[in-house]
Design a protein around this nucleic acid. Structure first.
Lengths: 355, 355
DNA sequence: TCCTGGCACTCGGTAGACTTGAGTGCCAGG
DNA sequence: CCTGGCACTCAAGTCTACCGAGTGCCAGGA
């Protein structure tokens, strides 16, 4: 089996290359077992695993090498070994395919997409629930950012004599609103006309064009148009931080036994902006995984993140992510993220009105 | 000190009345100390507490009575006592005033309300953060339900040839939208006219009137009007479950040391509908407190909930709630909920356009 | 040259015995 | 009716011994 070429250079020197086949098999066995049991894995367990056909003594000597190279660690002498982040990384990169969902889970996904309907936000929200149920990890879904969306309609609606509502519909189906306090009462007519003025100059353009709306000459209307400028600029700023949905945070309490860890990870999930940038950083091309400190957020050092892009026709529509312990079930998590991400992407592509 | 009248009927028989003054003082001391330390409180600690000027032996015999009457329990013989839910209840009802925020916290609240601005949703969202920071418990804010809101504007906007967006503005400033898939292409003009038809018959009425919109006779427009009916009915159903904001769930991990408890409580907080009905059930009149199983949700048996209403001009605009362990700092939590609820209510009252 | 079975060793975890000390219940005296 | 005193209880901490999973190393065999 083992190609004889392996013998010439001792495997140790080829640190970053594929481990010699046997070591890889041993590493795989350790990772798989540890993911399942959460307990340090001893050489005899590995020797019994299928895929490894050597004695425990041989396994031990290989484990020494794997430890020296940083793939495994011993919590203490006379205990089994645990994979390091590097070990998990090798496992993810070389030892596992994205994996396939079990039939029951596949059915769950199918049913979900058969049944889900309605607004994009609702769909994304519910998708987090699906993902966290499939995997029993916490799930995150980030929807499309609006930065390329253009304005489709602008309307001013009076709420009370001194209060109006600016309602902006974007080409991707998002609706944003801002209340505007008026310093003087405005007629229904003036509100409608100011909406029309804004519409006339914004429809088809991005929101940032709001500053350049020319005035109409009618003082009452222009007063409203000017009052709408500031809200517009706020809109611009807040729009991309929208559309973050977190599902199944309670699952985190299952994944970690240290309360302190649960707390700090929950703390991260509360900060939407951090979540968005985290996903953005992790996502390189296609399905991506960040293990331990690879993403640079210390509070998540004991976590792994699996991210799949949401795309349709090559357009970036967001991302779905799973957050679990570093000893997460990578094949399953990757499969779930991949499948859900793909199908959700299709849906968004057909629903959001872009072409 | 003690009125002699107390002697005639032994205090035991008057279970539900005010405990004799000394017992109340002892109960208060136990609750206060236990809230602070989370450890069973012994008689000598109580004897040293100010407000109690008797020896520990006397305290002990009173504690026996308090235990018999169900206000205290011993985790085991030869340990101090812990308040029961009934004990906390008595404490909340008779031994503490809503309390006043410390100067630093008062400042925090003031600054918050000076600085917060913009949409109601944003404000409610951020208020959960304020509340959980003030108290270090999880916070919940439920915004106004729309059930009395009337329609202010209806608009149909085309997104793509076969996709339109129904945008409804309500009198309370809420904006709801639903995408509508069309079976046949619709002109901009027809969309606008269908919006006008819907507007004409709905503005000023509640959403439920959508079924009675008369048709205009123009087939293209009527097709759109009919297509909008179903989305409207969905709107009706989903509107009140909106506007639930949860803040600081990570604090729960601080409050409880049992991971299992954290998990189940987080699970509850994930279900918006449950949260809303919980608050609604707990809220009686003004500031309300539910301790342990008083609210009937088993997973929250080790929790206490403090709820304050959001009102303006006597109108119900929602509620703010705090969720913590039964040994929460009631005075502080009640003060925070009260103050924030009150000021938030004022804000909503002045901003939401109702009169 | 590499694998394997055997063997001595390590060390975390568990169980039992003992100690400590906070806290109790009870009682007799003021 | 309160109080100080006293004997008692029992969770938690400490110490010890032991067990066993697991290791590293080595000599013999393929």
């Amino acid at each position: 089996m083992t190609p004889p070429a392996d013998r010439v250079p001792p495997a140790d020197t080829t640190d970053e290359r594929a481990l010699n086949e046997r070591r890889a098999a041993i590493l795989e066995a350790v990772v798989t077992e540890y993911i399942g049991t959460a307990e340090p894995v001893g050489s005899s367990h590995v020797a019994n695993a299928h895929g490894v056909q050597v004695s425990s003594a041989t396994v031990r000597s290989e484990m020494v090498a794997l430890e020296r190279d940083g793939y495994l660690v011993q919590p203490h002498t006379s205990a089994g070994r645990i994979p390091t982040d590097k070990g998990y990384r090798f496992f993810v990169d070389h030892l596992t395919e994205p994996g396939v969902l079990g039939p029951a889970q596949h059915l769950q996904v199918t049913q979900f997409f058969d049944q889900v309907h309605g607004e994009m936000e609702t769909m994304l929200e519910r998708a987090t629930g699906l993902l966290s149920e499939l995997t029993s990890y916490a799930a995150v879904v980030v929807g499309p950012s609006h930065d390329t969306a253009t304005v489709r309609s602008v309307q001013m609606v009076g709420l009370s004599p001194l209060m109006a509502l600016l309602v902006v519909v974007l080409s991707d189906g998002a609706v944003e609103k801002r209340t505007i306090e008026l310093d003087r009462e405005a007629s229904e007519d003036a509100l409608a006309r100011s909406g029309a003025v804004l519409s006339a100059h914004l429809v088809g353009h991005t929101i940032s064009s709001a500053w350049t709306v020319p005035l109409s000459g009618d003082e009452e209307v222009d007063r409203l148009v000017v009052a709408a400028r500031v809200p517009f600029s706020f809109l611009e700023g807040t729009m991309d931080s929208d559309h973050v949905f977190v599902g199944g945070p309670a699952r985190l309490a299952e994944s970690f036994d240290a309360v302190e860890t649960v707390r700090s990870v929950l703390g991260i999930l509360e900060q939407q902006l951090v979540v968005v940038t985290l996903l953005r950083d992790v996502l390189h091309s296609g399905l991506s995984v960040a293990i331990g400190t690879e993403h640079g957020y210390e509070p998540l050092a004991s976590c792994a993140v699996v991210v799949a892009p949401l795309t349709a026709d090559g357009q970036d529509l967001g991302a779905v992510g799973l957050l679990g312990p570093t000893r997460m079930d990578y094949p399953r998590a990757m499969a779930a993220a991949h499948v859900v991400g793909e199908r959700l992407g299709e849906r968004l592509g057909s629903h959001d009105g872009r072409h």
